[in-house]
Amino acid sequence: MNANLKEIRKLRVYSEEFKKGIVSFYESGKYSVLQLERLYGVNNVTIYNWIYKFSTFNEKGIRVVEMKDSNIDKLKQLELKIKELEQAVGQKQIKIDYLEKMIDIAKDEFNIDIKKNSNTPQSAGSLRTRK
């Protein structure tokens, strides 16, 4: 019985607007063909065909070649951004440590408890007092 069954191929049809959108993402330099393939689940050969068909930069008979340097530059930029963010986090941590030390000094020298005590009962709010 199973011998008569055929596997149905999934044929996806994409709108021309979608295809041009993918090509514009590629041309903007934000995404590589491999990244677009992973994001949208479209085969890279199909994306290259769309680039040949819809790209404003590519002429017929010219092959599209992605330079590895562009990916390396993107990686360097991302590493630099990570370094800057780690530095900012480090500076914030130093500031937090400083403020905590100041709170401890205020508590020891002036008997001021700045940190909120978790056992403190909640305020009932401000009620009008009778005169």
Rank of each mutant, 00 (worst) to 15 (best):
E59W: 00
S55W: 06
V64R: 03
K107E: 09
Q91M: 07
L39M: 14
V45A: 12
S55K: 09
K30A: 08
D108G: 03
Y98C: 13
I62N: 07
G90A: 14
K101D: 14
K76G: 10
L36I: 07
K101Y: 12
S55I: 07
K30P: 01
E79Q: 14
D108T: 13
F110V: 01
K81G: 06
T46I: 08
N111L: 04
G61N: 03
L75G: 08
Q35T: 07
A106G: 02
K30T: 04
N43T: 04
A88R: 11
V42M: 04
L36D: 01
F57G: 15
K101P: 05
F54Y: 15
K53F: 13
S55D: 06
V45C: 06
I62W: 08
I105M: 11
W50V: 03
L36R: 04
L39Y: 12
A106I: 10
K107M: 05
I94G: 12
V33G: 02
K95H: 05
K81S: 15
L99E: 13
S70L: 12
K95E: 13
E100F: 14
E100H: 12
D108E: 15
N71M: 11
E109G: 02
E27W: 00
S32R: 04
L99K: 12
I51K: 04
V89D: 02
S55L: 02
Y98A: 11
Y48R: 09
K101A: 14
E66C: 01
I105W: 06
Y48W: 06
A106C: 05
Q87G: 08
I96F: 12
A106L: 10
K95F: 09
Q91H: 07
T56Y: 13
L85D: 10
K60F: 00
I51L: 08
A106K: 01
K74P: 06
L75C: 13
W50M: 05
Q91P: 00
Q87I: 12
I96P: 05
K53R: 14
Y48K: 02
I72R: 15
A88N: 09
E59H: 09
Q87S: 15
E109T: 06
E84D: 11
D97F: 15
I72S: 13
L80G: 00
V89T: 04
I82M: 10
F110W: 02
Q35C: 03
I82V: 09
D69V: 12
Q93L: 15
D73E: 11
Q35L: 04
I103H: 02
G29S: 11
L34Q: 03
E86H: 09
G90V: 05
Q35D: 06
Y48T: 08
V65N: 01
S32Q: 02
Y31R: 03
I94H: 15
